[in-house]
Design a protein around this nucleic acid. Structure first.
Length: 210
DNA sequence: TCTACGATCTTT
DNA sequence: AAGATCGTAGAT
C-alpha cells in the first residue's frame, strides 16, 4: 500500500536513495544501466554511460581542480552536473561519491519508456535511436539544460532517477571524444552500454562483453 | 581582454 | 567532410 504523501511513479518504480550514488564511480556507472530518468511525463531508460573518476582522471572536467563550471561535480553524489558542449549541446551527468571527490557519470544514451509524443516534439519528429543515442540528444529529449545544475535526483519533483530492471549483459569500451587525455586514460574501459540495445551512440566499435 | 577549443550533432 | 555556436580556461 502506498502511504499518504508517497509519490506514484512510472510502473511503481521508486526513486533511488542518496546512498546509491555515494559509492565508487565505476560501480555506480554500471548500475545506472537500466535505471529510469523521469522528467514530467517523459521517462527514459538508461542504455549507455561513461564514468569520469575524479581529478586523477585526465579525461575528467575535474582534472584542473574546482572551477565555476565543474563546481557541481565536487558536491555530494546524487545531483546533476549539466554543461554546454560545443556551444550547442547540454550534457547531463550524475555526480557520484562523497562531497569533494569530483567524480560523475555522463549519460550517453537512453531508450524511451514513456512520453514518446513529448520526446518526438523535442526531437523534431525523431523517435528511433537517432532521437536518444548521444548525450546531447538525451538532454534535449528530457528537456534539461544548465538550469538543472545541482538538481538532486533523489528528491521528488523536477528530474528524478528511478529504479529499473538490472542489466542482463553489459558491454564495456573506451570513452568517446577524450583525445586530450593521456594515452592510458584514453584506453580505460569506462564506457558502459546495455548489450543488444539499439539505443547506443556511435561509435559502437570498441564495445566488448564485460 | 584575447584565443583556442570542446565528454557533439546536423547537414552537405 | 565541414559548419554550427559560445562558454570556459589558460594565456596575455
Amino acid at each position: 500500500m502506498l502511504r499518504y504523501g508517497q509519490q506514484v511513479t512510472e510502473a511503481g518504480r521508486r526513486r533511488l536513495p542518496r546512498r546509491f550514488y555515494e559509492r565508487d564511480t565505476l560501480v555506480v556507472a554500471r548500475e545506472l544501466l537500466g535505471k529510469r530518468l523521469r522528467h514530467g511525463e517523459v521517462v527514459l531508460g538508461i542504455t549507455e554511460v561513461e564514468a569520469y573518476c575524479g581529478p586523477d582522471d585526465s579525461a575528467s572536467h575535474s582534472r584542473m581542480g574546482r572551477t565555476q563550471r565543474n563546481a557541481p561535480m565536487w558536491g555530494p553524489g546524487g545531483r546533476a552536473y549539466v554543461y554546454l558542449c560545443y556551444g550547442l549541446h547540454q550534457m547531463l551527468n550524475i555526480v557520484t561519491e562523497r562531497e569533494g571527490r569530483g567524480a560523475a557519470v555522463l549519460i550517453r544514451a537512453c531508450e524511451p519508456v514513456a512520453g514518446l509524443e513529448t520526446i518526438r516534439a523535442r526531437r523534431r519528429g525523431l523517435s528511433g535511436p537517432e532521437a536518444l543515442a548521444g548525450p546531447g540528444r538525451v538532454a534535449a529529449a528530457l528537456g534539461i539544460d544548465r538550469s538543472f545544475n545541482d538538481h538532486p535526483l533523489y528528491r521528488a519533483g523536477g528530474v528524478e532517477l528511478l529504479d529499473g530492471p538490472p542489466p542482463q549483459q553489459v558491454l564495456v569500451g573506451p570513452r568517446v571524444g577524450i583525445d586530450y587525455a593521456t594515452p592510458s586514460d584514453c584506453r580505460r574501459p569506462w564506457r558502459f552500454a546495455l548489450a543488444g540495445s539499439r539505443w547506443v551512440s556511435r561509435p559502437r566499435a570498441g564495445l566488448r562483453a564485460g
